[in-house]
Design a protein around this nucleic acid. Structure first.
Length: 255
DNA sequence: ATGGCCTCGGTTCGAGGA
């Protein structure tokens, strides 16, 4: 099976691209972030008409997550039971025995910002929840926009990012703590070329110049990591008209 | 030196993103 994650930066704008991408890319599961839609405005009928199941948790203007699945979903949980949060950034479902958790980690804005402290608290809460989820579900995949570049190899020009969010030591430590629970960064299971990224700023012709970051990740528990045969970033949608600034990451899991 | 783009909500700009 293939499972994927994509920060679509407004599902209202990007729904046609999501449906096109699903038609081009037969994945069993697609996790979306930054849907930016309240649940009453979520285009569930359009997604279901394309033959998928979908669950979602949204709010006005910001954030919002969803899981699109070819197979039915069970035990859907919205938000982190261990972290009270007004913002809609987490949704989980069990699909064919695999616990799939879709996450939109806060950006943090800047190291001096209250939003950065919120990001670190949010990640600590996620750590608590994932610890419990792993105990209950040995087959677990945590996919999403982490807003963290794990190492300088995941940054186009590390020198320009020193002292900024996405690369700071506490954030990277929080990501490593998650990995320390027994998860693997699916992308790094395999040999990869240098300068492969999942996000490029809209400005400065960043995509054309490949000034990007790898901040969207698929983390797999050990039983899934052992069965993972590939993890790729699909740059194609970033070249489409009116693209999201992020592009999908896809992991392949053998039966 | 600064900001450069995109989306949203709601007005003709500011907030937030990364």
């Amino acid at each position: 099976m293939k499972i994927a994650t994509w920060n679509v930066n407004s599902l209202k704008v990007r729904l046609p691209q999501v449906l096109q991408w699903l038609a081009d890319n037969p994945v069993e599961v697609l996790c979306l972030q930054e849907t930016k839609l309240t649940d009453d405005k979520f285009p569930a009928a359009e997604i279901e008409a394309a033959g998928f199941h979908v669950v979602y948790s949204g709010q006005k203007t910001y954030n919002g997550v969803a899981i699109i699945s070819m197979r039915p979903m069970q035990d859907v949980v919205r938000n982190n039971p261990h972290f009270a949060d007004e913002q809609q950034r987490l949704i989980a479902a069990t699909i064919d025995g695999i616990r799939v958790i879709c996450a939109y980690v806060p950006n943090g804005q800047s190291l001096e910002s209250d939003k950065y402290q919120y990001k670190l608290r949010w990640l600590a809460g996620l750590q608590t929840w994932i610890t419990a989820e792993l105990a209950a579900h040995p087959q677990l995949a945590l996919l999403g926009d982490y807003n963290i570049a794990p190492t300088d190899r995941d940054v186009h020009d590390p020198a320009t990012w020193v002292g900024q969010v996405l690369v700071s030591e506490p954030e990277r430590a929080a990501l490593q703590a998650l990995i320390g629970l027994g998860l693997s960064d699916a992308f790094r299971i395999f040999e990869q070329a240098d300068k492969l990224f999942s996000w490029w700023d809209y400005r400065q012709m960043a995509f054309r110049r490949n000034m990007g970051m790898r901040i969207d990740h698929v983390l797999l528990s050990a039983p899934l990591a052992q069965r993972c045969t590939a993890c790729v970033i699909d740059k194609a949608p970033r070249k489409w008209e009116q693209p999201s600034d992020h592009t999908p990451v896809i992991a392949t899991i053998a039966p």
